[in-house]
Design a protein around this nucleic acid. Structure first.
Lengths: 339, 339
DNA sequence: CTGAAAGCGCTTACAG
DNA sequence: CTGAAAGCGCTTACAG
């Protein structure tokens, strides 16, 4: 019933060599005769041998395990499919690189009791990919002086052990606002995300830059903050509209918020895009399912996940890269029109 | 810099006992003096000792690792946030049970070359939670005779090692259609999911049962199949409408499809729910973000994930439970009205 | 109730 | 280029 698992010993015996040699063959060591190597690999194949990663970890002190840490998954997961997409893409390239991935979650509260470095050793991780971290978090502080390989999504930190990956948020916001300006809009509202989110600063920069570039001045009262939820955005847009009846376009820092904004505006009797143009951010699948299809700035989740895994791998190997920036892409759809 | 990790030896030395005894203390063995036990745990706490799970796996031949296998993640992940929610909830209770979780993905093609049992041993898993499996898959066949603990979501199989968890799909469909009937609808279309999906059969049953219960006969040409995508549903609803101009309500086997249907119907000049009532399935977050808010049948992802982990745990412990069914819940919202 | 010893399946200096 | 041996941090019969 239980078909005994084949070990390195079995391979060694059948190949007529020592286990050390088999180990060498499997670890791509240079100090081994290419022919013996071929021979061993062939026999291993026949026997269906796969190195026991657990034993390897224990003896080599290398774990070949990467953690994927998601903060407040209950929120980010439900609301934002981006997280899941990025995670799966990360996992895929991590697998190709020979690493297994374990899924971990945390919250701002938990971080007060359990240090990140402890999590690292407890879980026997070689590296960690972290999503959803806020600037007010305990881990954000700890990350500035950690000496373990980490990669952060959408938040930056200055530490050679910590890589950062994300879309160029400033440019993305710039593209969105520039697009609106080119459509003739002059009074453009902005529903930004969390005040504590790193990306909110970057996107705010983009909003300003686009105005500057085209000779427009920003009225700060056109800017609202919400919490990346549709509900929050609905309230924010109502505040905005009440202050500025003559807004003709609104840039939302996420598609989810854009959807909330469209709905609330509909309820208030506005027609989109005829009365007000709306542009989102993220490019989630659902942004094109609803009517009108949301014009948005797409984050390429495949590229982000892949880049994160490669970056983490490089850091583990001793390279110090720092930051990988993915190009955002404007997707022109139906929720915007010229005035 | 590298703060040497504390091992069982350190604890043993400091406590003045053997490593065997420390091991006993940590494994809740009964044959140990409660006082020594307390003493050891206290010292371990001071030293910040955590058992090395890798070493434990290697020596005990128990891995405390669970796989989470997702099929065709590119599709299910993008389209359906349910998968991610269930996964995270599964992970959470697995963690409480002392297991770590590794994320795995597969496709129908991959299954032809790599057996499930091989994946099991290669990844050193104690159990596996599988989502998105289709009835035509290679693994579906293999699962009927596997002797390793598995739990499937939304698909049933008769094997003591394999547990099944999911919402009561027949009842869920029944509730949806019953609700429409009670609203006075008599000609009710049905956009079902994949023909190869197990749940499609169950939901079809529910559609029939509701008709039977209320003395209505089913016209089979009211039933369409789509692939769980909004695009597929858009085409399906157009075929349906072309055959039956007088349909007054449509039950869709997923919220994503319901959203597609609403959009296409809007394009065709129908007003929802005034001209046609639409009801979905799943209860994803976005179903309430759009306008009209979609009436739907909710799957409780928290309960499903938790149940799946507990079920898998029980199977690993030697219990044979079989199947856990979660109650679906009808969410009355805006996309339906009485006629 | 406790300890000494073997062993889990690998890797890695050390010799040769 | 290859082998013998020690060791990674635990668990588990076996004695006592």
């Amino acid at each position: 019933m239980e078909n005994k698992t084949v070990t390195i010993k079995d391979v060694a015996k059948k190949a007529g060599v020592s286990v050390s040699t088999v180990s060498r063959a499997f670890n791509n060591y240079s100090d081994i005769n290419p022919e013996t190597r071929e021979q061993i690999l062939k026999i291993a194949e026949e026997l269906g041998y796969k190195p026991n990663i657990i034993a390897r970890s224990l003896s080599s002190n290398r774990n070949f395990r990467l953690g994927m840490l998601v903060e407040d998954y209950d929120l980010s997961g439900m609301l934002n499919p981006l997280v899941f997409e990025i995670l799966m893409n990360f996992k895929n390239t991590a697998t190709k690189l020979g690493y297994e991935t374990v899924l971990l979650s945390t919250t701002s509260d938990v971080q007060k009791n359990e240090k990140l470095s402890k999590l690292f050793t407890d879980k026997q991780l070689d590296g960690m990919f972290i999503m959803g971290l806020k600037m007010t978090d305990e881990y954000y502080r700890e990350l500035s002086q950690i000496d373990k390989p980490c990669v952060l999504y959408d938040i930056n930190i200055n530490n050679p052990y910590v890589g950062c990956v994300g879309v160029d948020n400033t440019k993305g916001a710039f593209l969105a606002v520039e697009y609106l300006i080119k459509l003739g809009h002059k009074k453009i509202g902005f529903i930004n995300g969390h005040k504590d989110a790193y990306v909110s600063y970057e996107r705010l920069d983009g909003y300003f830059l686009a105005h500057n570039r085209y000779g427009l001045t920003v009225d700060n009262s056109l800017i609202e903050y919400a919490d990346f939820t549709d509900k929050g955005a609905e309230e924010a847009v109502e505040r905005l509209i009440n202050r500025h009846r003559d807004v003709t376009a609104i840039f939302c820092a996420s598609d989810i918020m854009a959807i909330g904004v469209v709905n609330r505006l509909n309820d208030l009797g506005y027609s989109i895009p005829d009365d007000i143009s709306i542009i989102g951010f993220d490019g989630i699948y659902l942004s094109q399912c609803i009517s009108p299809k949301i014009t948005t700035v797409k984050q390429d989740t495949a590229k982000i996940g892949e880049a994160a895994a490669n970056l983490l791998f490089n850091i583990i190997q001793g390279q110090r890269i720092g930051r990988v920036v993915i190009e955002p892409e404007l997707l022109e759809r139906e929720s915007t029109k010229s005035v």
